[in-house]
Design a protein around this nucleic acid. Structure first.
Lengths: 207, 207
DNA sequence: TAGATTGTTAATCGATTAACAATC
DNA sequence: TAGATTGTTAATCGATTAACAATC
């Protein structure tokens, strides 16, 4: 395992990556100043972050855009598309499953589950919503890398437990409730109301 | 204006609030230990955060749950529901507009706009999708507090400009592209692929 | 009073910034 | 070479943690 990269740096690498994906087809080199400009980070910060990757740009010249893009993708563990399993085919789940942008960013929604008989069997894009009871059986074959929870709060913890039990130890939770996972698993929580509440605070300050 | 609260604290206050909303109807007092337990933060951190609110709990007893809930809500600037304007009625926009949870958390989706004639006039819940050309006219009357961008990347900056021009200076951007806003406006970016990419990194470490 | 729990201090830790020697 | 830009250092800044006196 490579040396640990600071958390704050890890959180910024995807932003650099997004910028480089856009820039690499157009320009062969880029500089810390370019990247800073394109991502809203300072140039010193960019260089410091990249130094954790053991990267070597070229002094006086900059970074090879395509090489740096690939280096960051590798550092993040993005190889061929990672398979994502989505649980919950309500509004948000359906929107996520339909979202075309994941493919270009290293992910493939490989399966969607729900427990509502009304939803089971319906199609979302190329996928058919499957009974969540089938998840255990499917998981072994499919090798899901990441699980997304897009269910109501009430069942979010149960879904997290189910995922972890079946070897899906990396989870993105959209339900507005903290879910706990055992040591060795990782969960990130995205709560849209919380994002709005944080904004509400800065709205008051901004005037 | 009240004294500034550290950024890291502001980001945690909504989590405490969510916990307190749940707990206040059940128990009249709560402690930093309870809150810590319920939100995944340390008790020392909770007390330190709350100290920035100039709050006074009671030594030996704890905090009045309902009073603390209200104090945090006020500190965040959540009074009566804040009006949110949503631009982009695609998959994600529709999911957000349909999401019932915002009402309980201090927000009301007050209007939805799109520029696609196919979508204009269609209903999403109680709302009718309006032509984005009408946004300028509507904004003055409506008094939107926060704007959400749920459009394709290509037009995200234009939408941000439009919002700011019309006095909506607090923006949540879901398009996977950085949008810039002038001094005095605030934007938060939520990029779902970036969340997955960060997880991908920790997935590699966790095994 | 004895037990519990806050609010605050001081120490530690990690992240950011600025500056500049190295070097293409 | 002269100009540009990296990689790294040292200084600063902000956030977290642990400990405990204050006090209900």
């Amino acid at each position: 395992m490579s040396p640990a990269i600071p958390r704050a740096t890890v959180a910024r690498l995807p932003r650099y990556l997004r910028f480089l994906e856009e820039v690499a087809p157009k320009r062969s080199t880029t500089s810390s100043d370019d990247i800073a400009e394109g991502t809203g980070v300072t140039a010193a910060q960019v260089r410091k972050d990249l130094s954790h990757l053991g990267t070597y740009g070229t002094r006086g010249v900059g970074y090879d855009a395509a090489a740096l893009r690939d280096l960051i993708a590798r550092a993040l563990g993005l190889g061929e598309d990672l398979k994502v399993v989505l649980v919950g085919a309500g509004n948000l789940g359906t929107a996520l499953a339909n979202y075309g942008g994941f493919g270009e960013r290293g992910f493939e929604i490989a399966a969607v589950y729900d427990r509502d008989p009304q939803r089971i069997g319906t199609a979302i894009g190329d996928l058919e919503v499957r009974d969540v009871e089938l998840l255990s059986g499917d998981a072994a074959e499919e090798g899901f890398a990441i699980g997304i929870i897009a269910t109501p709060s009430g069942v979010a913890q149960d879904v997290a437990d189910l995922l972890v039990e079946n070897g899906v130890r990396t989870i993105l939770n959209f339900a507005p409730r903290m879910v706990r996972v055992p040591e060795g698993s990782v969960v990130r929580q995205v709560d849209l109301a919380i994002e709005l509440q944080i904004l509400a605070y800065y709205r008051d300050r901004a005037r």
